[in-house]
């Protein structure tokens, strides 16, 4: 199951494997919003978490490949947890683990150094011999090469520590996404229902869909993965019988033309099928 976490009414995926599955198996793109672990101070490439549109999350939920999880209202440890045996146990376990990790890292680092020295032994010996020659015979007898084991220091500060991305304990509370709630207020909202219908319909036709606010629409529709392909359509969700002003039509038509995309006016019919109308800028000659 893909775990979708709710935070302030927004859907997030924190697990990298889940992100990969969502994209590769379900053609859901989402937006990365966190700092990239490798290079956090830039905005060109971002990292986890992946934020999903409500429609994207709902599609995964409807297909029953994901669960919606909220931050558990019951904290793992109460505020007066200092005496909680479970808590003390957890702290002890953490500290012990850190200690183990340090010892293991110390051992590994020493091993690595030994291996390195071993591979360079010949060159070191050559260097020493050269130095002695330069000093002449008058110098003191060469100090014996120090034992690599004893001279090796691996201070505690050098220990590498992980700052985990995903939650380390698995406390979770599922959210029922069918009904609107404080955590997930979308279910049953007419706006959301319409957008979801359009989203689903496009998705089922094999398209990749992202948020279209950059282009003044509801969705951007891609023929393939947005990593490698340009969007073809700007989808605009309109209520079936709501009047549409000519000005709006012209402005979206203009925009679509100037970014070389086709504007789709999408509305949901009474029986739930989605009707698409495309706009094309044309002139009489």
């Amino acid at each position: 199951m893909i775990r979708i976490h709710v935070l302030e009414g927004k859907a997030f995926v924190w697990n990298c494997a889940d992100v990969q599955r969502i994209r590769e198996e379900h053609r859901i793109v989402g937006t990365l919003v966190g700092a990239l672990a490798r290079k956090p101070r830039q905005n060109v490439r971002l990292g986890l978490p992946l934020q999903l549109l409500p429609e994207e999350a709902r599609l995964l939920l409807e297909k029953d490949v994901a669960t919606l999880i909220k931050n558990p209202s019951s904290k793992p440890f109460a505020d007066d947890a200092e005496q909680d045996p479970l808590f003390l146990e957890a702290v002890a376990a953490y500290q012990e683990e850190q200690e183990e990790s340090y010892m293991e890292q110390l051992r590994l680092a020493a091993e690595q150094r030994k291996a390195l020295l071993g591979s360079l032994a010949e060159r070191i010996a050559q260097g020493r011999a050269k130095k002695q020659q330069q000093k002449g015979e008058g110098g003191e007898p060469l100090s014996k090469p120090a034992d690599p084991e004893s001279s090796f220091v691996f201070p505690r500060e050098s220990m590498m520590v992980q700052l985990p991305t995903e939650r380390t304990w698995l406390g979770q509370e599922e959210v029922d996404w069918h009904l609107p709630s404080k955590e997930w207020p979308y279910g049953g909202q007419p706006e959301h229902e319409m957008r979801y219908c359009v989203f689903q319909s496009l998705w089922e036709q094999g398209y990749y869909i992202t948020s279209g606010s950059k282009f003044g629409g509801d969705f951007l529709v891609y023929p393939g993965d947005p990593m490698r392909f340009h969007a073809h359509y700007i989808a605009l969700c309109v209520t079936r019988d709501a009047p549409l002003s000519l000005c709006d039509i012209i402005s979206v038509g203009r925009l679509g033309t100037s970014v070389k995309k086709t504007v789709l006016l999408c509305s949901v019919d009474q029986d739930g099928t989605v009707v698409y109308t495309s706009l094309q800028w044309s002139g009489m000659q």
Partner: peptide, 19 residues
């Protein structure tokens, strides 16, 4: 639902060698 306490169980924690 009781929070399931498996603090170190998840697979995304790196081993000392990986660290």
């Amino acid at each position: 639902m009781e929070p399931e306490l498996r603090p170190r169980a998840s697979g995304h924690l790196l081993s000392p060698a990986e660290l």
